[in-house]
Computed example of a mutant assay.
Amino acid sequence: MRYDAPSPERWDHRGFDTGFGYVSARGAPLVGLLDPRPGERVLDLGCGTGVLTAEIARHGASVLGIDGSPAMIEKALARYPGLDFGIGDGHEFTVAQPYDAVFSNAALHWMSRDPGRVIDNVRAALVPGGRFVAELGGAGNCAELTAAMSTAWREYGLREPSLPWYFPTPAEYAARLEKAGFVVRLLEYFDRPTPLDECPGGASDWVRMFAGSVLEGLPPEIVAPLLGRVDELAAPALRRETGWMADYVRLRFAAVRR
């Protein structure tokens, strides 16, 4: 398998499975949809620290996890030394031998430079009849969070933040899959409010972890008050007596290569 130059690190891997472990825990039903079988070859695209890669392997499949973050892959290798991991960008990866299935959880929306190319690469990585099973953020994902960011940036006289994600509508993504040579067998689009109980800073912690790129180049002295303003703006919609919530909207699908 060949991997081209990795993409920059997406978030702080040290918090990925601790303060923000819901990214992995909430993906468990997706493995059931994949239904990995003993002896199958599965590629986990955007595997992060390998939690779901290991879950797929426990079903008896031969699985390879790839991710664009070297830090994520380093942690995955340390945690699961018996599994195969490598650094790979979804826009560029190729495989030497095709796979029976490609799986992806909470990663495709980060591959925003050219989503169509990512889908083309997945198709090329599959045997005819191979499965593509994934979940990503859908249209409206984090709408309250991103609206709070936009308003805070505007109030501070800053340019609109350039957000790093791709959140498609169900119709848009189904059309991309069909155009690339897939038959869509299942597509679900649903709200999934997610507790941020382990984010003491609320929305500001979420911004630092998942949208840290928007803080790059800002004067250091305004970052704290700017994020404080994001908290104030997001609180009416997202803060509950029990803690903060993220307004997630998910797009889950299963497709088959023609």
Rank of each mutant, 00 (worst) to 15 (best):
Y156H: 05
R208G: 15
V207W: 08
G82H: 00
A139H: 06
P29E: 12
G201S: 02
R192M: 15
A76Y: 00
A148F: 02
A61T: 07
D100I: 14
A143W: 04
P98H: 08
L77R: 01
G19R: 15
G46R: 01
E221G: 04
L158K: 00
F132P: 12
G202F: 10
T169E: 11
T151R: 07
A61G: 09
P220L: 07
G65R: 13
R131H: 08
V95F: 03
F16W: 12
W206P: 06
S213T: 14
R58I: 08
G116T: 05
E55A: 14
G86L: 04
L215A: 15
R159Q: 11
P164S: 02
D12H: 03
V51N: 04
R26L: 15
E40R: 04
G15A: 15
R257G: 10
E160H: 04
G137N: 03
G39K: 14
T49F: 12
E92G: 10
A147Y: 07
E232K: 02
G46H: 02
P81N: 07
G48S: 04
R26Y: 15
E232D: 13
V42I: 06
L136R: 03
A224L: 03
P195L: 13
R159W: 03
A246F: 05
D197C: 13
L226R: 01
P161E: 09
A174K: 11
A235N: 04
V230N: 06
R41E: 10
W244N: 03
R117M: 08
D89Q: 08
F167K: 00
L177R: 02
D247R: 02
A107N: 02
E241Y: 02
Y156I: 00
C47V: 11
D44T: 10
S213V: 15
R159I: 11
E74M: 00
